[in-house]
Design a protein around this nucleic acid. Sequence first.
DNA 1: GCGACAG
DNA 2: ATCTTGTCGC
Length: 265
Amino acid sequence: MDRRRSEVDSAPSTSSPRSNFSDHLHSNWLEAQDSLKKKLVTEDDYTWKLGEAEGVELLKYIGGVDISFLKDNPSVACGTLVVLDFKTLDVVYEDSSIVEIDVPYVPGFLAFREAPMFLELLKKMQDCSHPFYPQLLMIDGNGILHPRGFGSACHLGVLANLPTIGIGKNLHHVDGLTNSRVRELLEAEENFNVDCISLIGDSGKTLGAAIHSSKGSFKPIFVSVGHRVSLASAVEVVKRTCKYRVPEPIRQADITSRDYLRKHH
DNA sequence: GCGACAG
DNA sequence: ATCTTGTCGC
């Protein structure tokens, strides 16, 4: 049985920054990410099209997931799955569920805390062969813009075998990427009039894109590949679902989960 | 040693 | 993530 390091074993002053959770659990999580990452696909892998083509399947049902927590009891959470019509951005499906979560939030391991309930919500739709089951899912959290290239959007995408896109509202500093560096790029003269820049780390890898998604905000959002979607397609989908800074699937899931939690507490 | 660290 | 009102501006 897992057990936290006790004060007897190590004085508080020498406890590690991760004394929050056991080193054992930490290594299990690393192994799980490493294993799931082998199934990751970072290119377009779907049959539908985004545009107005005829005679081909189009992207119509786009999902979004988010989670809210109770201000008092932080272990009480409400997870929400919404599905929007890609063209009209109308919400055509929504489902919420309140659960207790004991898994702590640890930077770099967000999926272990949030993915299980999202998988449940997806399974519920799948089990009844719901006609609005999403063809693509947006997650508020990163994809490959992650210390080990496997953020929660990748994690959920692989487990659900769905194309996913990661949306970060704050930059996860990784591979030398910092807020100031992103700001420099967005404000660089050669990028004047450019609302979207590639995020290239010190390693030379393109990890995602920073997008000024709405004219009313200076703060960008950070888009990265989750699973079975290329960065170019991800950026295109995000741009087309942004009425405000945060893309509608995420924004609607966020609003709904917060409302549901408030109403059912 | 210190700061940083998606949600 | 969450605690929180008004307020300045198009």
